[in-house]
Simulated scan of single mutants.
Amino acid sequence: MTRELWSIDARDPRTVWAALVPALEGTGAAILPHPASPSGLPETVPANVAVVVETSGSTGRPKRVMLSAEALKASAAASEELLGGSGQWLLAVPAHYIAGINVLVRSHLAGTEPVMMKPNGFSAETFIAAAGELTAGRRFVSFVPVQLARLLESDDAVDILGTFSRILVGGQSIPATLLAAARARGLNVTTTYGSSETSGGCIWDGRALDGVHVRLVDDRIELAGPMLAEGYLNDPRRSAFSFREHDGTRWYRTDDVGEFVDGVLRVRGRADDMIISGGVKVSLAEVETAVRALPGHSEAVVVAAPHPEWGEAPVVVTTSAIDLDTLRQLVTAQLFAAAAPARVMLIDAIPLLGTGKPDRLALASLVLK
């Protein structure tokens, strides 16, 4: 059996909210929220699919992830349990990505009306204005790291953030210095890890939500639980590769590598971010974490570039000048010599995707010029 699939204009999140509720309850069509008119969209999807999410495509071709109402509700219920109950949400991230959809699903299950910011023009001023519309005592918000960093620059915004019961930050790795700065100012920040394929963040502060299972297979992170997607729309080959059954349990094979440290999952970076430099395996994500800990470089990005002697080497792209020798000494001390960046590229602004994530494909092309 199938159901209709509608493309929903996500530039106004209220349009997504209006279509999402009947999609979840089975009284309306399945939806694909999108900021533009997507191409190649089929008329129908499997009957149990409620929402199709198009991934950001930050490192390759975007995928269309099929999510059932049951998966989205399971994720929301587990989140609410860890939050200690329901409350009112402020939507500060785009409604066509899973983090935004989750805010709306949680609001629906809680029976509360979310306050919705428009996806463009995020600033301390627009955040403060939107937060002023919240009416509940318990309030929550979800950010990407760059949004939180921007708000920490405003004392007024920090005062408002202090009234939130919980602040979720995910979508990409959060610099340790940013997390420490937020917590030092008394903000209740929780880091989240997950993807569209897991109905959003299912690992909070390195620990799995209720019902979620985590394992490492050759260092690759695999996740299981009721929040898993049905697969990829019209892409059975990719679905079969990413979603696999083992001993009666269906697992999602992520693109990330990780490790457990005292029972807490530590995400080391993407599997395709691992390079071999001078015969040594180097994680670009770990180099990036070390660089971002430096004052003024919290948004720096590390990408790979060919090297005539080592094969490949890390290159730091940043908006603030830094001495290369000093940087190499720092990374060598924190990691090892092969991880030291070969060069620094200074640019005016880091190109971003709609989610606020760095456009790594654009940066990788830039360092090759």
Score class of each variant (00 low, 15 high):
residue 186 G to V: 14
residue 242 S to R: 15
residue 241 F to W: 15
residue 243 F to M: 09
residue 162 G to P: 05
residue 163 T to M: 02
residue 127 F to A: 08
residue 249 T to A: 06
residue 153 E to H: 07
residue 234 N to F: 02
residue 146 V to H: 06
residue 238 R to F: 11
residue 242 S to D: 15
residue 263 G to C: 05
residue 238 R to K: 11
residue 159 D to Y: 08
residue 210 D to R: 13
residue 232 Y to E: 00
residue 237 R to K: 15
residue 248 G to W: 14
residue 159 D to S: 15
residue 187 L to I: 13
residue 275 I to H: 05
residue 133 E to M: 15
residue 139 R to C: 10
residue 159 D to R: 15
residue 157 A to P: 02
residue 135 T to N: 12
residue 216 L to D: 05
residue 178 L to R: 00
residue 254 T to A: 07
residue 181 A to H: 09
residue 211 G to S: 14
residue 273 D to C: 04
residue 190 T to L: 10
residue 260 F to I: 08
residue 255 D to V: 10
residue 224 A to C: 04
residue 174 I to M: 07
residue 269 G to F: 00
residue 272 D to G: 07
residue 170 G to D: 01
residue 246 H to T: 09
residue 224 A to I: 02
residue 227 M to A: 00
residue 248 G to R: 13
residue 200 G to S: 04
residue 215 R to F: 12
residue 143 F to H: 00
residue 179 L to H: 10
residue 238 R to A: 11
residue 205 D to V: 07
residue 143 F to Q: 03
residue 267 V to N: 03
residue 152 L to N: 05
residue 238 R to D: 11
residue 170 G to C: 05
residue 265 L to S: 04
residue 167 I to F: 13
residue 263 G to A: 05
residue 183 R to T: 06
residue 156 D to T: 08
residue 242 S to V: 14
residue 133 E to F: 14
residue 144 V to K: 00
residue 271 A to S: 12
residue 148 L to R: 09
residue 200 G to Y: 01
residue 186 G to A: 12
residue 189 V to A: 01
residue 226 P to E: 09
residue 133 E to S: 14
residue 204 W to A: 00
residue 186 G to F: 13
residue 204 W to I: 00
residue 219 D to M: 12
residue 131 A to T: 02
residue 210 D to H: 07
residue 254 T to F: 02
residue 238 R to V: 07
residue 245 E to D: 13
residue 173 S to Y: 06
residue 188 N to R: 09
residue 151 L to T: 05
residue 194 G to T: 08
residue 164 F to M: 06
residue 241 F to P: 08
residue 253 R to C: 11
residue 199 S to M: 10
residue 143 F to G: 00
residue 186 G to Q: 13
residue 149 A to F: 09
residue 270 R to T: 03
residue 131 A to R: 03
residue 262 D to M: 05
residue 206 G to I: 14
residue 264 V to D: 09
residue 273 D to K: 01
residue 145 P to N: 13
residue 236 P to S: 06
residue 162 G to M: 11
residue 143 F to E: 01
residue 148 L to T: 06
residue 167 I to P: 09
residue 202 C to Q: 04
residue 157 A to Y: 09
residue 251 W to R: 03
residue 174 I to Q: 03
residue 244 R to N: 07
residue 130 A to V: 08
residue 272 D to M: 11
residue 275 I to L: 08
residue 252 Y to G: 01
residue 172 Q to M: 11
residue 193 Y to P: 00
residue 259 E to M: 14
residue 261 V to G: 07
residue 231 G to I: 07
residue 223 L to G: 06
residue 129 A to P: 01
residue 145 P to C: 11
residue 151 L to A: 04
residue 186 G to C: 12
residue 258 G to W: 03
residue 140 F to K: 04
residue 188 N to D: 10
residue 264 V to L: 12
residue 179 L to D: 10
residue 203 I to G: 00
residue 236 P to H: 05
residue 174 I to L: 10
residue 205 D to G: 09
residue 184 A to W: 14
residue 131 A to V: 01
residue 217 V to Q: 15
residue 198 T to E: 04
residue 225 G to C: 12
residue 224 A to W: 01
residue 207 R to K: 14
residue 257 V to Q: 11
residue 252 Y to P: 03
residue 269 G to Q: 05
residue 181 A to W: 04
residue 187 L to M: 11
residue 182 A to G: 09
residue 227 M to T: 01
residue 206 G to S: 14
residue 213 H to S: 14
residue 228 L to G: 08
residue 152 L to G: 04
residue 249 T to V: 14
residue 218 D to Y: 10
residue 234 N to W: 02
